[in-house]
Design a protein around this nucleic acid. Structure first.
Lengths: 243, 243
DNA sequence: CGAGGTGTTGAGAACCATCAATTGCCGTGG
DNA sequence: CCACGGCAATTGATGGTTCTCAACACCTCG
């Protein structure tokens, strides 16, 4: 059993038997490196592949005709990318590399075998997809109903929570996104992201040192934006038994 | 084979063999009626059930501590509700009846049998869940990056598209939501929803007659908010074959 | 007739966007 | 080594979209 990001992340939630693992490992058979800011897959092009993130950060976004951009998903090592495209023939968003990184593409058709042969893995993938959906409801809540400072508190706590799954001890994390990208995620301008970050820092809620973020007061920040950690656990009780 | 909302809706996308249909029919075995504005399931309570909507409209929302509300999903007859809760032990949102209606609850544990015995149905449910995810990305795009008028154009077109799946000929549809609920969906106040609706009407894009909405100029409205119809088709090419 | 829910309209204020200028940083090339 | 350009972040001034508060009209239902 090879060590992998996907395994590392999933084993946080559920015990993966050898049979399931063989199937999962097939998803990471192929590797494709990408440089920062490279487009992986354009919106509207054929959506016949999904990806496992092996290293680096990626994100996907949609554009309005006049150039306004909304980032809808940020992807870290161990994440499965492209669930949204399973239901459609064409990609619903554009996927780009936020930093240098490696993706493992696998064909959508591969899922057929997963569903027929290893229902437990299918259930696991289902759960991952559904978790993405919950993350999106959190994002809707933020973009729809929060002030700028609350949006940023949510954004930073969410990245922190995700980081903690694989790095439980780290109090701070590196943020390889610029302020325009942050704004395009939570619905602000780059200018107001800057002003709000300064505000959070002045209040003593966070500190920053060249790209690294430290959450100084998680409790107050979480109260401020009603934050829920979606990454610490999942419900696997209904999963089919391992073969 | 009994006629049902679920069958009616799903058969729009994929041929459902008898074996699959038997499994799906089990999801609708039990019925529970709800009056308008009744809470079906509170956020934070045990999430061990999913629902098929048999009749009426339902929606689910989250609240911020100070009372701000964000509606994250609107559910019509034939929809499966509660995918988000599959990944967690506690419900992530509160589900209420928007109008009088009937739900068919079924236990989450039921999915185990679906995944082991009927992979094709599992794939179908997976696809429905993923479609919900795409609808959420559309909503994020609207709340994060659109003006009030654009948000409303998107909102109305989305409901219209959903309505057309089961009522292809109808040019207008009934909207059993008040303007506060509309605002809580797309991130506006009830006051500004009113003003923006009047604006759309003045421009000749829509017309209203006591609760019914008619989209007068779909093309211009769609261009205005870069609308994509997510309901006209789905990709079922990768599904396991019927048994 | 009165009460409550819903929608409309107006005035004022607040928050965030827009525009513009400045700083600092880094890599490049003279 | 220094000059230069480009990108990212910051800061300030101004303006606009939307929110808030308030009043009023309408309808339904008691």
């Amino acid at each position: 059993m090879i060590e992998s990001c996907l395994y590392h992340k999933l084993s946080h939630y559920v015990e993966i038997d050898d049979n399931s693992w063989d199937v999962l490992a097939q998803l990471e058979e192929n590797e494709e490196p990408y440089c920062a800011d490279t487009v992986v897959r354009e919106i509207g092009t054929s959506a016949d592949e999904l990806f496992v993130v092996k290293s680096g950060w990626f994100y996907s976004f949609v554009l309005l005709p006049d150039g306004r951009r909304q980032i809808v998903s940020i992807c870290h090592p161990g994440d499965v990318v492209g669930f949204a495209d399973i239901a459609y023939h064409k990609a619903c968003d554009t996927l780009v590399a936020a930093s240098d990184g490696i993706l493992c593409p696998f064909p959508k058709q591969h899922l057929r075998k997963v569903f027929t042969d290893t229902p437990r893995v299918a259930a696991l993938l289902f759960t991952l997809a559904v978790r993405d959906q919950v993350l999106l409801t959190d994002l809707v809540k933020a973009t729809g109903r929060m002030s700028a400072r609350e949006k940023l508190a949510y954004f930073l706590l969410e990245l922190d929570a995700r980081h903690r799954v694989t790095h439980p001890s780290n109090a701070s994390f590196t943020l390889p996104l610029n302020q325009s990208e942050i704004g395009d995620t939570i619905g602000l301008t780059n200018v107001y992201v800057s002003k709000s970050l300064v505000a959070l820092e002045d209040e003593g809620l966070i500190s920053r040192q060249n790209g690294d973020i430290t959450i100084l007061n998680p409790a107050d920040m979480a109260a401020m934006c009603d934050f829920q950690d979606r990454h610490d656990q999942m419900d696997v009780s209904w999963f089919p038994a391992p073969r």
